[in-house]
C-alpha cells in the first residue's frame, strides 16, 4: 500500500495518482457476473453492432468502479470517500488501456472534517476524456 496522504500534503492543483487499467472481454464477463448486469452490449459483439455500437463496450459502472478506485487508492486507508459522480460521455472498448486521473480543485474544512474536492476522469490511450467525474473526500491530518 502507498503511504497515507494527509490534508497538509495537498493543494489546489495537486494531481491525484494515475491508475492504469487494462480491461479485457474477460473482465467484462466477470463484471457482468459480479454486478448482475447482463446487458449483451458488454459481451455479445453481434448484439452490440445491432445496437449501433462499434464493438462490445465497457459497462459504465465498471468505469465508475475504476474512478472509485482512483480515489480510494489516493486517499488511502484513512481517507473517506463522501461523493463520487461520473458521466459516460464516450465509449471505451476492451483491449486498450484506460487511465484514471484527477486533480484537486478545492480544499477546505467543514464540520471538523478536512475536505478535498477533485475533478477526476478516465481517458483512453489517445488522451480522450471519455468519462469525466467529480469526487469529494475527507483526508486525515498529519499527526503531531
Amino acid at each position: 500500500m502507498a503511504e497515507q496522504i494527509y490534508f497538509e500534503d495537498v493543494e489546489e492543483g495537486t494531481e491525484v495518482a494515475t491508475l492504469r487499467k487494462d480491461p479485457t472481454t474477460q473482465q467484462l464477463v466477470m463484471y457482468a457476473g459480479a454486478s448482475g448486469d447482463y446487458y449483451q452490449i458488454h459481451y455479445d459483439l453481434e448484439f452490440a453492432k445491432n445496437n449501433g455500437l462499434p464493438d462490445v463496450i465497457l459497462h459504465g459502472a465498471l468505469k465508475n468502479a475504476f474512478l472509485g478506485q482512483v480515489m480510494t487508492d489516493w486517499i488511502g486507508d484513512w481517507g473517506t470517500l463522501k461523493k463520487l459522480s461520473v458521466q459516460y460521455r464516450g465509449m471505451d472498448v476492451p483491449g486498450t488501456p484506460v487511465f484514471g486521473k484527477g486533480v484537486v480543485k478545492k480544499k477546505y474544512q467543514l464540520d471538523g472534517e478536512n475536505i478535498v474536492e477533485c475533478e477526476i476522469w478516465l481517458e483512453d490511450h489517445q488522451g480522450q476524456r471519455t468519462t469525466p467525474g467529480y469526487a469529494v473526500a475527507a483526508l486525515p491530518e498529519r499527526p503531531e
Binding site: 459497462h59 459504465g60 465508475n64 473517506t80 470517500l81 463522501k82 459522480s85 461520473v86
Partner: peptide, 12 residues
Amino acid sequence: SANLDGGSEWEY
C-alpha cells in the same frame, strides 16, 4: 429498446 447508462452520482 436500446439502452445506455449515462452516469451516476453517489453520496456515501
